[in-house]
Structures are given as structure tokens and as C-alpha cells.
């Protein structure tokens, strides 16, 4: 009797292990293949997401309260600096307006409806973050009903922070550029130097120890300097052109000395994100 019992237990454990790993492998494969998760998963996510607002809203409210108190202390100095910038900004704004209208008219002449720089945005609040050291994932409060879809670029503050990895009806998950998942930070980017020459490439990794993004295998002879601006190039057709990624931190040779490796300082910190903007390419 006792032997039978232990055998039964062993069988149960093995079955549980197989089911567990089957589910994990299956959901990873599904996640990479499909634009949206299965309907049951979406449904469950929406319900849990709705329930989470009960706890997340007061918690986030408290956080913003404390933040505004701590920001009050250096308001005066910040105000003085900002005033100086504002005077310059008005000029830029007017010029930007004229250029945009001119650009629109020129596009019309050419019968060019949508180019890579035309995109619309969806603004969303960050609800929570995955409590895990392996997945750097945020959960935002906009989903399919607001026009979010998989692989869209996500920005916060002044720059790119990641891409949409899972979409449900009313919430979605954002994989940050700092995630260790290899697919999460492959964005097509371009760097323009002072004399107007550009270098194209893709983001090839994230260096955790320094917090820098890397762009590997650059064979171009164009000379790049520290401080040159990095933007998305719009190649691949999912990400719009012209999203700010960051600045060049340093340029070095790669491990074999054949190509260059470029380190990029991201425009925004990947921690402490409250509001994000999802960029959707117009088509």
C-alpha cells in the first residue's frame, strides 16, 4: 500500500512538472508568434488589471504626492533656468510650425501621403511593474481598444524606453530596453554627426554595468563624436522615424578590431517611469 502511494505521488509530480514546463514553453512561443494572447488570457488580464487599480491608484497617488513635495524644494532654481530656455524655445516653435506646413505642402505636391515621420501617439499611465529580477516589464493602462498593438515603440520623458510586448483589451505590457530578452531592444537607429553624415544600424544590446546601449558591427568610415544625437531610423516599417534614443557616449573598436562599437547614453532613465507615450505609425 505504501509503495503504491509513493508511486502515485511520483507520477503526480512528474505530470505537474511536464504541464508546468509545457505551459511555459508554449506561452513563450505564442508570445513571439501571435499579435495578441489567447482570448482567455486576455480576459483574465483585463479582470486582474481592473482589480489592480484599487491598490495601484492610491499607491501611485501617494508617490506623486511625495514627488511633488520633494520637487518643491528646488523649484526656484529650476524656474530661473527654464525661463532662459523658454525665450529661445518660442523662436524654435515658430520655425518648426512654418517648416511643418511647408513640409505638408511639399508632400502634397509629390502626392506622398504618409512618410516614416508621420505617427500618432497614445498616452498611457504606468500601473505597475513586474516584481521580478529577470523581466523588466511595465504594465500600462491602455490596450487594444485605445489602438495599441504589439511591437509599437514606447517613449517616456524625452526618449525611447522600449516596445509593447503583449496587448490585452484594456492594458498592455511594455518590455524595457534594459530587459535581458534579446528581442526587446533591437531597434533600427541612425546617428547623425556634426557635418550631417549619417550612420545606420541597430541597437545590439544593453550594458547593465554602465547603463549604456550598444550598437555593434558598424563598418562605416563616418567619424562620430561624443554627444552626436541618436534617433530611430524607421527601417523595418513598425517604428516611426525620428524618435530620440540618446547621445553617443563613446566609440570603440569591437572585440575583433574589425568594426566599431558605439555606446549610447539613453535619453531617459529606465527606472522611475510614470507616464509613457506609445507611438503608432500612420498608414
Amino acid at each position: 500500500m505504501r509503495k503504491f502511494f509513493s508511486n502515485q505521488r511520483l507520477v503526480i509530480i512528474v505530470v505537474i512538472l511536464v504541464v508546468c514546463f509545457g505551459l511555459m514553453g508554449g506561452s513563450v512561443v505564442l508570445r513571439n508568434k501571435r499579435a495578441t494572447p489567447p482570448l482567455i488570457q486576455q480576459f483574465g488580464n483585463d479582470i486582474v488589471g481592473f482589480a489592480s487599480t484599487i491598490v495601484a491608484l492610491p499607491a501611485n497617488g501617494l508617490q506623486s504626492g511625495f514627488n511633488s513635495i520633494s520637487e518643491l524644494t528646488n523649484t526656484y532654481q529650476e524656474n530661473r533656468q527654464l525661463k532662459q530656455q523658454v525665450t529661445g524655445l518660442a523662436q524654435v516653435k515658430v520655425r518648426n510650425q512654418t517648416l511643418t506646413t511647408e513640409n505638408k505642402q511639399l508632400k502634397k505636391e509629390l502626392k506622398l501621403n504618409h512618410s516614416l515621420t508621420d505617427y500618432s501617439t497614445v498616452t498611457a499611465a504606468v500601473m505597475t511593474r513586474t516584481p521580478s529580477s529577470w523581466q523588466n516589464q511595465l504594465i500600462i493602462d491602455k490596450g487594444e481598444t485605445s489602438g495599441v498593438s504589439k511591437n509599437m515603440a514606447v517613449m517616456s520623458g524625452s526618449g525611447l524606453i522600449g516596445r509593447i510586448s503583449e496587448v490585452n483589451k484594456t492594458n498592455s505590457k511594455v518590455e524595457l530596453l534594459s530587459d535581458s530578452n534579446e528581442a526587446s531592444n533591437r531597434f533600427a537607429i541612425q546617428i547623425t554627426n556634426k557635418s550631417g553624415k549619417t550612420v545606420n544600424g541597430i541597437i545590439s544590446g544593453y550594458q547593465k554595468s554602465t547603463g549604456l546601449l550598444t550598437m555593434g558591427d558598424v563598418t562605416s568610415k563616418v567619424s562620430l563624436k561624443k554627444g552626436d544625437k541618436v534617433i530611430t531610423s524607421g527601417m523595418g516599417g513598425v517604428t516611426p522615424k525620428g524618435l530620440y534614443v540618446g547621445k553617443v557616449a563613446k566609440v570603440s573598436e569591437d572585440d575583433y578590431g574589425l568594426a566599431k562599437k558605439i555606446y549610447i547614453t539613453p535619453a531617459t532613465s529606465f527606472n522611475d517611469i510614470n507616464i509613457v507615450t506609445v507611438a503608432e505609425l500612420d498608414s
Binding site: G26, R31, S52
Partner: peptide, 13 residues
């Protein structure tokens, strides 16, 4: 189950 669905998006762990 809620944790898998909502936080990680990978079922089964």
C-alpha cells in the same frame, strides 16, 4: 495564476 497572467505573461511557473 493571476501572477502568471498579469505580471509575467508567461504561464506555468
Amino acid at each position: 495564476i493571476c501572477f502568471d497572467l498579469y505580471y509575467s505573461g508567461i504561464l506555468g511557473l
